[in-house]
Design a protein around this nucleic acid. Structure first.
Lengths: 227, 227
DNA sequence: CCTGGCAGGATTGGATCCAATGTTCAATTG
DNA sequence: CAATTGAACATTGGATCCAATCCTGCCAGG
């Protein structure tokens, strides 16, 4: 029940209608999972979701299928869908993927970056300095990283990278909790932007790797300290 | 129509029933796309697929949703699903992703590899030496690579890597066509296996990178020569 | 002759209904 | 008393039906 009331709030504030009911349910559920409002292990009853969203069970089913393909749900035939659990091992897993994908994306992107992207990245850095809400902070952090990558002429690589960054948002809450009110390594962000502007690819990649490693270490410490 | 008769053959030989109709349709369609039997650009009519599979439109719809999330279909609301096109740019994109993921997977796997995996890899190498059918060749190649990676304790990284390897199967047909009857760089495969056995991680990664680069170059040349 | 709009058909999106499977709990038997 | 079986319930999977949207082609007007 509590999970459903939580969801009702998310649905209410996601008022912006989508093209189809399926897209609406899918986007809202994903946002709820990534933001942590739907915790890992929560079972998702199709009927309950349908009434909560004010639609029939069918768009819910199709949305659940898509979220399963994105590894946000575990789907067992005739048993139902469960929000995938997060864990130290899973965090390390996601970290390994980001550590592989993001340096590649950055390397392929830097030669094509223009003043347009640099300007947007600068704006995002400033926004992050003053943002307080952890939910919006994850969004800003993701957009900053993606802005530095998005000049790479590799749409599938970019889509994969953004997907992994989104997954990491689920952990960002713990990260922020662990680091307290310290903003998340804005030094690293500024350094990456400067190196990218100077087209110093090795330096930018070096800072990025350190940035990710620091985040992973913080998370590992946080998990270790609470079983 | 011709696409449907092609599909009928795939359905017939995929006789092995699955748990649910949705899983059956999804697995069969994916195999048909990856093997090239369903060419890029083919529009998929839900009603036709339903009759071809002998099920109703609903499991077809759910399967299409999942394949869309796997980037094998382009889904446009109220217009339908189309098999994603393959192109030189897309090949380069997939290559960049493999070049990022596979060295990472190999590096994380090598310390945990045991004689069990080495034995299976050796068997697969031998199978590839004698295999003639291009379809089964892609399967063997994929399993060889995954065998070397699968000791890594990172299930999500492995799932992603395998997914990308599967995508590359769509191009493997062209690769085999371009290289003629030459088997695909068995030298590289043997070298990787030997280096992994010796726990020589830098050497194994070096061979893997060269292996992938060669494949990408062959494909690029093939695409260039025919617009 | 060309262009814009309207009507008809085709196709997908969504809702409701029925069947199949999984779970739970109680009763019965060893 | 414990274990097992079976029956009722809850939940998901699948089929059919209706509504919304998009494409096609014809017709009228400029």
């Amino acid at each position: 029940m509590t999970a459903l009331t939580e969801l009702a709030a998310v649905i209410a504030e996601a008022g912006g209608r989508h093209r189809t009911a399926t897209a609406f349910v899918e986007a809202t559920l994903r946002a709820a999972i990534l933001s942590g409002r739907l915790a890992g292990g929560t079972p998702l009853r199709q009927e309950d979701l349908a009434t909560a969203f004010g639609v029939s069970r069918m768009p819910v089913r199709e949305a659940l299928r898509q979220l399963e393909a994105q590894a946000l749900l575990d789907f067992v035939p005739h048993k139902g869908a469960v929000v995938t659990e997060i864990s130290a091992a899973d965090a390390a897993d996601t970290y390994a993927i980001r550590m592989a994908l993001e340096p590649a994306a950055l390397t392929l992107s830097i030669p094509h970056l223009t003043e347009f992207e640099f300007g947007r990245a600068t704006d995002l850095l400033h926004d992050m300095d003053v943002e307080e809400d952890p939910g919006r902070m994850g969004e800003l952090n993701r957009r900053f990283h993606m802005t530095l990558y998005e000049a790479a002429p590799h749409p599938k690589l970019l889509a994969l990278t953004e997907s992994q960054l989104s997954s990491f948002d689920r952990y960002l809450r713990f990260h922020l909790a662990a680091k307290g009110r310290e903003h998340l390594s804005q030094e690293d962000h500024r350094g990456m932007l400067a190196a990218a502007r100077a087209r110093d690819c090795p330096r930018a990649v070096e800072i990025l790797r350190g940035h990710l490693t620091t985040a992973a270490a913080t998370l590992a410490a946080f998990f270790a300290q609470r079983g």
